[in-house]
Amino acid sequence: MERNSLSRQTEYLLADGSPRYGVRTDDAPTPAVSKPVTGKLPAEVAAGLHRQQLAMAAALRTVRFRSEDAEGLVAKLRSEHPAEHVEALKAAVDHLGTPRKWARASLYRFTEQVTDSLMDSPAGVSRFLIPAVAAVLFLLGIPALAIGLPLAGYELSLTLPVLAVYFFGGARFVGSMMAKARYPERFKLNRYLAEDLYLDVVDATLVRILQDKGTEIDPVTERMANRGWRDIQAVAAKVEEIYSL
């Protein structure tokens, strides 16, 4: 019986002593390592977003906030890689500045990408020409009166009540003209929500830096750290699609 048992064990084992069937220890799979990713950093891509895209992304973030467990995973990722986190923060500062500067610059980009493009068409020029002329006339009104009335032999007396009525009435007039022209609305962006979006970009930049270095990242942590940036990209693409109709 001992001989049969020994024979079965010998058949089960290979010459090197490893099992003939099943998974051999020397062939066990190694942990997956993140492969380097090419392309721009999220912080660099975020620098090209305009105000409407950020405002809509902020609105989505108010209803898609992270859970406490997800925040803990992302916070742990930052603490485990402090050097890369500093590198991600520096990339955000280089491309975006502070959250407030990023929000302010997005307003200028909206003017460049959306409003200025409308002026390239004849319909856009005729639509916004009247408010522009009204604004110019309003700004030139006081100098024109100051020069024209003395030349006509009238004495000009600009008291404080007269100036207040002029500027108040002129501002209301220009505002009504721009409203009638339906000038593109520029959305407001809460500064606290801008800070949240900024942190989302920093977290995604941290993940990209770690991937470029081939550092292994837990898949769940990677998904949670990239979630905010993915939402920003999805909203930005949809807004851009709407404005290109």
Rank of each mutant, 00 (worst) to 15 (best):
V207L: 05
L151Y: 02
L54G: 11
A204E: 10
A47E: 01
L163P: 00
R172C: 05
L158Y: 04
G22W: 08
W229I: 02
A58S: 13
I242M: 15
S67F: 04
Y192I: 10
R227P: 00
L156R: 04
L206C: 03
A103P: 06
F173N: 01
G97T: 04
E80T: 07
I130T: 05
F128R: 06
K238M: 13
L158A: 12
E68D: 15
P150F: 11
L73V: 02
A194P: 08
A75K: 14
L73I: 00
F168Q: 04
L206G: 03
V133P: 06
E11S: 09
S106E: 10
R100P: 00
E216H: 04
R109K: 12
L149Q: 07
P184G: 05
L41V: 12
G169V: 01
K238H: 14
G141P: 01
R172D: 11
E68R: 13
I209H: 08
L49P: 09
L156G: 01
P150H: 03
D94M: 08
L140I: 12
E87M: 12
D212G: 15
S244D: 14
A91G: 02
K76Q: 14
L129W: 06
K101W: 09
L163M: 07
P29D: 07
D27L: 15
N226W: 05
T10L: 15
A28M: 12
A88G: 11
E216G: 02
K101D: 15
P131K: 13
E240K: 13
V45G: 03
P150C: 04
L189Y: 05
L245G: 06
G22E: 07
A43T: 11
E68I: 14
E44K: 13
I232A: 08
A146H: 09
P122S: 04
A43G: 03
V174T: 10
G214F: 07
P82A: 06
A181L: 06
S117D: 05
A152G: 02
A132Y: 09
A135G: 04
R127M: 07
R182P: 02
V125M: 00
Y243E: 12
Y12L: 13
V74N: 06
R64L: 14
A75H: 10
N4I: 10
G169L: 05
V33W: 04
H50C: 00
V74Q: 03
G17T: 14
V93E: 15
D27M: 14
R230V: 08
T205I: 08
V201M: 07
L245I: 08
L107W: 01
A237M: 07
R227S: 14
F128G: 03
T98D: 06
K40E: 15
L107C: 01
G153C: 03
K101S: 15
A144V: 13
V136C: 00
Y154T: 04
A92G: 09
